[in-house]
Write a protein that binds this DNA or RNA. Structure first.
Lengths: 342, 342
DNA sequence: CGAAAATAAGTTAACGTTAACCTATGAAGC
DNA sequence: GCTTCATAGGTTAACGTTAACTTATTTTCG
């Protein structure tokens, strides 16, 4: 009945003493290097099999000064965009034998500093920042100063020696608005978020670009900048459009999160998409779920994870290289929520 | 111009030699234990401040045999449910000085075994499993055998010595269906997923319970079990209801992911919620975003993270305790998508 | 005044893995 | 018959932190 209270994990030393061989020989079997007799190998492998020995990554990390961990700072927003990125980063990391320490920031500035310190404490081999929150430049700088490679996804703030992966937001917005213009719409509404974040500035620029390209003048009376991405904000914006003297015939929303609210506002007045209003979303996270399904701008996130990890690993040997920026393309996913103007 | 290629991180030994004090004294300052003169303390703290020393958790982990990491095995499904749980687990872990190694499984059985081995390699202090995929019992057993505490969220499979946090799916489904019955509906449709997972069996049981309680007989012709949670599946199910000789007047869907499709099917025939069909969803992840907003059963996930971490930490001192199950309540969030039968 | 207690600090051995370095056999090769 | 080399294996010192010991000084007080 005697049972050790907290039985220790099997170690290489345990294997060595149990097989009567030395630590070095055990190491040689584990790493498949050097000369080991078939007999010794068999003995060691049998013992490993029997005990289910798993090498201790903590000890390996201490020795190699590499944690094989990467940090992922991410704020899950209400659509699945960042969750998708999280998934992609995880998969790509695993392919490289890395693991991901996910940290979700929700409070403000101070906490971000703390998060970064914790990542440093764990001696992460790199950090991916996926976030539209205002992580202070200083916090990121702290990582850079320690030669910890950093990649930022969907964050246009430039920091020296930090690689970025961004989406071609200007092009994406232009794609959406051009689609509306091509269907003969001339009064095109824009529902976006305040311009604190560069991504929104670019989307608005893309909207204006497309209008100007079609010989239209700026339609700033049809621009609504809300405080957040949410159905409520979308509803407010749409109601405000409907109350205007000359409402738009088409609307581009910079996030699929606005769509539900837009539809609710229309629904309340008995109006329908695309008959009474043409609508295009952005992200393509939710657009397929509405009735009717909504045309939206999809972001090519397929291998954003692999690219992020690639950038991190490439930076390792040459810490001082200048920053690279990778721009992901966008594609319009047509679901028929845009009608032709007669 | 000479610059060390990969300048090492500052260590306690560095602090000791730089200040002319011993390793032990540095340790005493860092842990605020024992006797240290004000002068020595000041010297050490100044050096720490200057160099930005951050303790190496890897070395601490090796010494203490505690990684301060917990593993989170999770499959992000298309609604935000699991992302929400991930967030909650992260926040709760951080409050306890733990960090989360997130692992997203997507392939099948074999990979799950590998994931578990990697968690063991990192010597995680506990594992949270949030997943409706079929992670083999054997993989979980492997963790249990090593006295690594495991908590399963929303997974009804019972494993010895593994704590569970589940949702009262039977009660939740009953709540939804009772709501429909209370409004006078007698032909109530059920859209769920195949009964491979216990959660779906419980939801179906809740549906039947409510019907029987109202003196109704089972309405198995109004039950549709789909292959996946998705708008497409919801659409198919609803179309099949509409093609039936006597369609239901109300529908309960076991996931908000079905709702979009249900609305699309209705929309195609010019039918409206709640006028032509009453609808209640489940999860309350997306229901608020539709037009009209849909009544749904919300899960009390607020402190699911804290509870998960609590269970893990409580299990630490007494590894052999029997399994506990925590059941989370549900609440009906009424958004008016249910009409009274005249 | 001397013993006990408080204060201040140093030494050293783990924790589990890796890798450089060393030793000892046979078997070829000249 | 000696050197060279391929084979098989052992010893040991890191990696950075912790904590148990040990060693001095001062105080405190019966």
């Amino acid at each position: 009945m005697k049972r050790q209270r907290t039985q220790r994990n099997v170690t290489m030393v345990d294997i060595a003493t149990a097989t009567g061989l030395s630590l070095a020989t055990v190491g040689r079997v584990l790493h498949d290097t050097g000369y080991v007799s078939a007999e010794s190998r068999k003995k060691i492998e049998a013992y490993i099999q029997k005990t289910g020995y798993v090498p201790n990554k903590i000890a390996q990390g201490l020795k190699s000064r590499q944690s094989k961990l990467i940090g992922h700072l991410v704020v899950f927003n209400p659509n699945m965009l960042f969750a998708k990125i999280s998934l992609a980063v995880n998969a790509a990391a695993r392919e490289q034998g890395l693991h991901v320490l996910t940290m979700t920031s929700h409070k403000g500035l101070e906490e971000d500093e703390a998060l970064v310190n914790e990542l440093i404490g764990h001696r992460v081999d790199g950090v991916v920042v996926t976030s539209n929150v205002s992580m202070p430049k200083a916090a990121i700088q702290k990582l850079v100063d320690r030669n910890i490679p950093v990649v930022m996804i969907e964050r246009t703030l430039a920091v020296p020696r930090v690689d970025r992966i961004r989406v071609d937001d200007l092009g994406g917005a232009r794609l959406a608005v051009q689609h509306l213009l091509d269907h003969g719409h001339r009064r095109v509404g824009f529902i976006g978020m305040h311009l604190f974040h560069e991504v929104e500035r670019l989307r608005l620029a893309g909207y204006r670009d497309a209008l100007l390209g079609a010989g239209q003048t700026a339609q700033d009376d049809l621009v609504r900048l809300m405080a957040e991405y949410s159905p409520e904000a979308g509803k407010q914006a749409m109601e405000s459009f409907l109350a205007a003297p000359e409402p738009p015939t088409a609307v581009f929303a910079t996030s699929d999160l606005f769509i539900g609210g837009v539809l609710q506002a229309l629904h309340a007045r008995g109006l329908r998409v695309p008959h009474d209003l043409s609508l295009v979303g952005y992200d393509d996270t939710l657009a397929a779920m509405f009735a009717p399904p909504i045309t939206s701008v999809g972001l090519s996130l397929d291998d954003v994870g692999r690219q992020a990890i690639d950038l991190l690993l490439k930076r390792q040997p040459t810490p001082a290289a200048s920053a690279r920026t990778l721009t992901l393309g966008t594609v319009l996913i047509d679901r028929g929520s845009v009608a032709c103007m007669a």
